[in-house]
Nucleic acid binder design. Structure first.
Length: 884
RNA sequence: GGGAGCAUAGCUCAGUUGGUUAGAGCGCACGCUUCACAUGCGUGAGGUCACAGGUUCGAGCCCUGUUGUUCCCACCA
């Protein structure tokens, strides 16, 4: 027997009796950093595997949703790294233009100043300081979680790399005519004072009112009654529309109205857009402040009168209402209309109102000159790529959501009236020339003038995020990184981000690089609170991942986030789940400790040279099928299933059974057998740790360090491979009989209230004598028995026995005074009833010719075997009943 | 109005391409100071898989419909 190692175990005293993550998590992470294990190397001999971290906003700190997102990515990348891929997980943060600027503006306000006071330059200086502070905080949190990302390639959406890519992408789109500037109705946030894209609007059902106003018809006593939810916009009315088929108003079409309070003369127009059934069937038309009215205005060539300033106050068009806030103006207008007798009625009305997804202010649709990306030509290839499976959604139902968005997409408003962000690379010359340039131009190419002014606006933050999969790799340069790592392999993100980001990366990647940016999109759900509510600031129900790490350790947090989850489904975060995870890891810790303690000072043989016993083959077989199942699940990104299979194996098979089964040998006299036993324990432990590592990296690395004969770190160890040589299917199946026997004895003892400590004598009618003999000591120990004897008939077990049919045969246990014949009879009868039910079920199936003819042979054979087994059981139980 | 999800044990959820007697955790009951672990061990109770049809030899799983529920999108001023 070859000796692989004298136990090197750092003194076992170092391993505490309970798992204490604080002892090692930070140290382990530092070791990984030190060893540069996260750094991705361009290695032509390896296959690259690339994941781009969705860059967290620098607005604050990581929440539970991030924790899950990052854990999933880390688990996948660690798995792939161990499988031998050249793994790049590229981390970064997002400047989050609007969100960050909003926060800084708020902060300035609390300091009694404003961004206007500071000026653009000083404001940007502050913003960069903010970035340093919060960006750094986020990175610290990612490290706490155990994220194995390549910090050498850390990116920021406004760093030089990304900025260069943004300018390139903008200019290319502009040159192709896919970016234009125009006056359109856009969503305007009067608080943030910027335009927003359609995707950034959050609608909510708000309670409001419906005001009915009379507009007098010019040169007549007649009125036309309109209804509105936003009276203040009447200042900008340039028509009233009715449905062309509406007989009530047919005579008024073409007539002129006098707009109350303003005095402007406006026409009555006929337009299909108007719903006869709704309101009064007459709609005031404010083309400058309503998207539908805007369209009506275009069709009827109506003037557009903008009545609101950027901050939501009434402008000069509003006459005496000028300068009032929109809501104050609303109040005054209603009052005046009432005074003039033009207010017909007010009805309560609930309607969907758009809010700024950042500051929640009620948005105003406003006509404004903005920059847009023409979406139709870009959407098409992005749809095709998913149709053709070049990019796959996991689970695939999210492809539908993606299609839904792209098929109904409107042009993307990309300009923001903000300072923090990528400034649009457009310059205006006094001669009227508009220059789009990658570099800051010094002269106008048209007139040669040098008085060039750069566009004040910034780009939507998602414009730069859209380039993330390749801008971070150096695009537009054909850098070695770009060539090796792009396209990326999988994008991991939540379903709520599909319209903002996934979709935009898709069309941007295809447009700019000619390739889809990622092969798979792994979509996960939201992390909710214990009651299933979304975690939010306003509810105050958010749980800080760092607090959980502080209390339970990062591994526990990670495992709790990955167990019991199904792809794409929301999950609830509960304390009991983390506790379960902590308990599980403690189990791993103690099982390891047990193996190592027993191995201390022993010469442990190589696994390959051990003569395996049935129990050994059983655990090896279980290990192998676990390796296979876990690997398959991981490859399909079924992390929840993989975690379940793995934890089941570790806790039940390895800890509850195999370790217990191994004790007689470990405590026995036979030194050789003891060493062999240790060899198997060590082998299973080592492989188990490797399988667990992607999920709970810290503790597995820590324990790995204690293993004898192991060199290097587990983070770069080879992932276990399924080996058919060790599948031992038949033997493992046979061994299940031993387990069943032990369980049967235990259950019998409990059934008759036999004290667990009382050793019983077992009598067994079986054909598997050898299997039982080999495992005799383990059986006696686990079942709490004193002796086991083979008999050929139950009578040999004596009087006052209880019996039970089990997989290995028929078990009899004399229990003397404990046996209550009445109870025993009842128990057997209940068992008989169950078995008869099974016989009826299986028999019925087999009596069906269609089943025999159409079901696969294996299914039929299994059913036959089952029937035989139950018939045999029935006979034995009946005999036992008659013997009683 | 359009789309998607969910409905399985008291609670929270798994359930891989349809195929043994539908699983887990927590909780519950009973019993264990068994020399790795009480963050533990053992045994157990608990489910007409929302409802109604259909396809199939066979349905928790596939199809149709119904009900309840959650979410996304669109939106009537």
């Amino acid at each position: 027997m070859e000796i692989i190692a004298l136990i090197k175990v750092k003194d076992m005293k170092e391993m505490q009796t309970t798992y204490n993550p604080k002892d090692f998590e930070d140290r382990i992470y530092a070791d990984w950093m030190e060893g540069k294990y996260f750094h991705a190397e361009i290695d032509p001999k390896k296959v690259p595997f690339t994941v781009m971290m969705p860059p967290p906003n620098i607005t604050g700190q990581l929440h539970m949703g991030h924790a899950m997102d990052e854990t999933m990515q880390d688990t996948v990348t660690r798995f792939k790294r161990m499988q031998g891929y050249s793994v790049l997980w590229l981390p970064g943060t997002d400047h989050a233009s609007l969100a960050t600027e909003h926060k800084i503006v708020e902060k300035l306000r609390s300091e009694g100043t404003s961004k206007e006071n500071l000026g653009r330059e000083e404001f940007l200086r502050r913003a960069w300081a903010w970035k340093e502070q919060y960006g750094g905080k986020i990175i610290g949190q990612l490290k706490k979680l155990g994220s194995s990302c390549d910090w050498d390639r850390l990116a920021f959406t406004m760093d030089d790399r990304c900025s260069k890519a943004v300018r390139e992408a903008f200019c290319r789109l502009h040159e192709k005519g896919l970016i234009y500037r125009g006056s359109r109705i856009i969503n305007w946030c009067p608080d943030c004072r910027t335009a927003l894209s359609d995707e950034e609007v959050a609608y909510s059902e708000d309670k409001g009112s419906f005001w009915y106003f009379n507009y007098p018809v010019k040169g007549s006593e007649e009125f036309i009654t309109i209804a509105t939810t936003r009276p203040e916009t009447m200042l900008g009315d340039t028509a009233v529309a009715v449905n062309p088929n509406d007989e009530r108003y047919a005579h008024l079409v073409g007539k002129t109205l006098v707009l109350p309070l303003v005095g402007r003369e406006i026409p009555v127009v006929a337009d299909d857009y108007v719903d006869v059934e709704f309101g009064t069937g007459a709609v005031k038309i404010t083309p400058a402040h309503d998207p539908n009215d805007f369209e009506v205005g275009l069709r009827h060539n109506l003037p557009m009168i903008k009545v609101l300033n950027d901050d939501g106050t009434v402008n000069g068009e509003g006459g005496k209402f000028q300068g009032l806030d929109r809501y104050e103006a609303r109040k005054r207008i209603v009052e005046e209309m009432k005074e003039k007798g033009l207010l017909v009625k007010i009805e309560p009305h609930t309607h969907n109102v758009g809010h700024c997804h950042r500051c929640n202010a009620t948005l105003e649709p406003i006509v404004s000159k903005q920059w847009f990306v023409r979406m139709k030509p870009l959407a098409k290839p992005a749809i095709d790529a998913v149709v053709k499976n070049k990019t796959k959604f996991v689970p695939d139902r999210f492809a539908k959501i993606y299609f839904n968005w792209l098929e109904n997409i409107r042009d993307w408003c990309i300009s923001r009236q903000l300072w923090w962000g990528h400034r649009i690379p457009i310059w205006y010359c006094t001669c009227g020339e508009v220059i789009c340039s990658r570099e800051t131009p010094s002269v106008c190419p048209k007139c040669g003038g040098t008085d060039l002014k750069q566009e004040e606006d910034c780009l939507d933050t998602w414009f730069s995020s859209a380039l993330w999969p390749f801008s971070t790799l150096g695009w537009p340069e054909e850098t070695p990184d770009f060539k090796y790592f792009y396209p990326t392999d999988v994008l991991v993100t939540g379903y709520d981000i599909i319209p903002f980001w996934v979709m935009r990366m898709m069309f941007s990647g295809i447009e700019h690089t000619g390739k889809v940016p990622f092969r798979d999109v792994l979509i996960h759900g939201l992390v909710r609170d214990e009651q299933g509510r979304k975690m939010s600031k306003s509810l105050g129900n958010g749980i800080d991942p760092l607090e959980v790490i502080e209390k339970y350790g990062a591994d526990s947090l990670r495992l709790s986030l990955l167990t019991g989850i199904a792809p794409g489904n929301d999950t609830r975060f509960t304390d009991t789940k983390v506790e379960w995870a902590r308990n599980f890891i403690n189990k791993v810790w103690n099982a390891s400790r047990f193996v190592l303690m027993n191995a201390k000072g022993e010469k442990v043989p190589k696994f390959e040279e051990i003569k395996l016993q049935p129990a050994d083959r059983w655990i090896i077989s279980r290990l192998m099928s676990t390796v296979r199942e876990v690997t398959l699940s991981m490859q399909k990104y079924d992390l929840g299933i993989a975690a379940d299979k793995l934890t089941d194996f570790v806790w039940e098979d390895f800890c509850d059974w195999y370790i217990e089964l191994s004790k007689p040998a470990l405590y026995g006299e036979d030194k050789e057998r003891k060493r062999a036993q240790l060899g198997v324990l060590m082998y299973v432990l080592e492989n188990t740790l490797k399988l667990l590592h992607p999920f709970i990296p810290f503790v597995t690395e820590e324990i790995y360090g204690y293993l004898p004969g192991v060199k290097g770190k587990i983070i770069v160890a080879d992932y276990p491979r399924y080996n058919t040589k060790y599948s031992y299917k038949k033997e493992a199946k046979a061994f299940e009989g031993v387990i069943d026997l032990v369980k049967t004895v235990r259950a019998m003892k409990v059934a008759v209230n036999c004290p667990p400590a009382k050793k019983v004598h077992l009598f067994l009618v079986t054909e598997q004598k050898r299997l039982v003999c080999v495992n005799k000591n383990a059986i006696l120990r686990l079942a709490g028995a004193s002796e086991i004897d083979f008999i050929s008939d139950g009578a040999e077990a004596g009087e006052k026995t209880v019996s039970q049919v089990c997989e290995l045969g028929h078990l009899f246990v004399p229990l003397g005074e404990l046996v209550d014949f009445k109870e025993e009879r009842a128990r057997l009868e209940k068992e008989l009833e169950r078995v008869e039910g099974e016989i009826a079920r299986a028999g019925g199936k087999l009596a069906n010719n269609n089943f025999i003819a159409k079901a696969p042979k294996k299914v039929v054979d299994d059913e036959r075997a089952k029937l035989e087994k139950f018939i045999d059981m029935k006979k034995k139980i009946e005999k036992q009943l008659s013997d009683l």
